[in-house]
Simulated assay, not measured.
Amino acid sequence: MSELAAKRGAVPAAKKALFLVFHIGSERYALRATEVAEVLPRLPLKPIAHAPVWVAGIFAHRGALVPVIDLSALAFGTPAQARTSTRLVLVHYQPQPWVEARRLGLILEQATDTLRCGLEEFQAYGLDNREAPYLGPVREDAEGLMQWIGVNDLLTDDVRALLFSSELSL
C-alpha cells in the first residue's frame, strides 16, 4: 500500500486546541487561544471611579479605549502580583452572539506558557458556582488541576453596562 493510501485510511487524530496558561496564586488556569487577541506587558491604567475593585481601569490601545479587569481580584479578592510575568492580555469579549465582539483586557499572572490539548480533556467539576460563572471545566495532568476560564462569562450585566455603555441600546 502506498504512503498516500495509508494516510487516507488512517483515523484522524483528535483535534487539539491551543490554550494560554496562567496562574492565580499557585493555581493554574487557561484561556482558549482563539479568544486571545494580543498579549502585552502590564501597562499603566486610568482608574474608573465607582467601579468594582477588580476593575483595574482603562487604557488607550490603537485608537480605542479598552477596559481592564484583574482576574485575580475578581476570583479571590486579591490583586495580581506585579511580576515580570504578569501580562495584560486582550481578549475578544462577546457575551451575546448578536453583540459585536469588544476588546477586554485581563491582568493575568505568569501568563507565559501555552498548552495544546484536546477539548475533551477538560471535564465538568461538579460544582454549580453561580457567583463565578466564568469558571469552566477542569483538566488534570502531572502538575495537578487546571481550570478553563470562559471569557464571555466574566462580567455581570451591571459591570458590562459600566464598561461597555454603548451596548445598552442593543
Rank of each mutant, 00 (worst) to 15 (best):
G63A: 00
L108N: 02
L115P: 00
L90V: 02
G136A: 03
R87P: 03
S72Y: 09
P52K: 13
M1A: 09
T84E: 13
S72T: 06
P79W: 03
Y134P: 00
L135F: 03
A142Y: 05
L31W: 14
A111W: 12
P133V: 00
D153V: 00
L163R: 10
E131G: 14
H92M: 02
L162K: 00
L45N: 02
S169L: 12
T84Q: 12
W54E: 07
S165P: 15
E27V: 01
A30S: 12
A30Y: 15
A124Q: 13
L168Q: 15
A33C: 10
L119R: 15
E143L: 09
A132C: 07
G144T: 08
P44D: 05
F76V: 04
A101P: 06
E140D: 11
Q123L: 15
L115G: 08
P52D: 13
L127D: 09
F122L: 00
V66Q: 02
C117I: 12
V159P: 08
K46D: 09
I58G: 04
T112Y: 06
F22R: 04
G105D: 09
D158N: 05
T84S: 11
V39A: 12
V21T: 04
P12I: 04
R102E: 04
L163K: 12
P67A: 15
T84F: 08
F122H: 04
L18D: 05
R28T: 10
V151H: 01
E27T: 09
L135D: 00
P41T: 08
S2C: 11
A13S: 03
I48T: 11
I149V: 13
L74P: 04
I58Q: 13
A13W: 04
H50P: 01
S165Q: 12
R42K: 12
I149S: 02
A101N: 00
H92N: 13
K46N: 07
R102H: 05
C117N: 09
A6F: 06
P41I: 09
V138Y: 07
P41S: 08
T34K: 13
S2I: 03
A5L: 15
E167K: 07
I69V: 13
T156W: 00
I58T: 11
D141Y: 13
E100Y: 01
G9V: 01
G126E: 13
F76M: 06
L106W: 10
Y29F: 15
L71R: 07
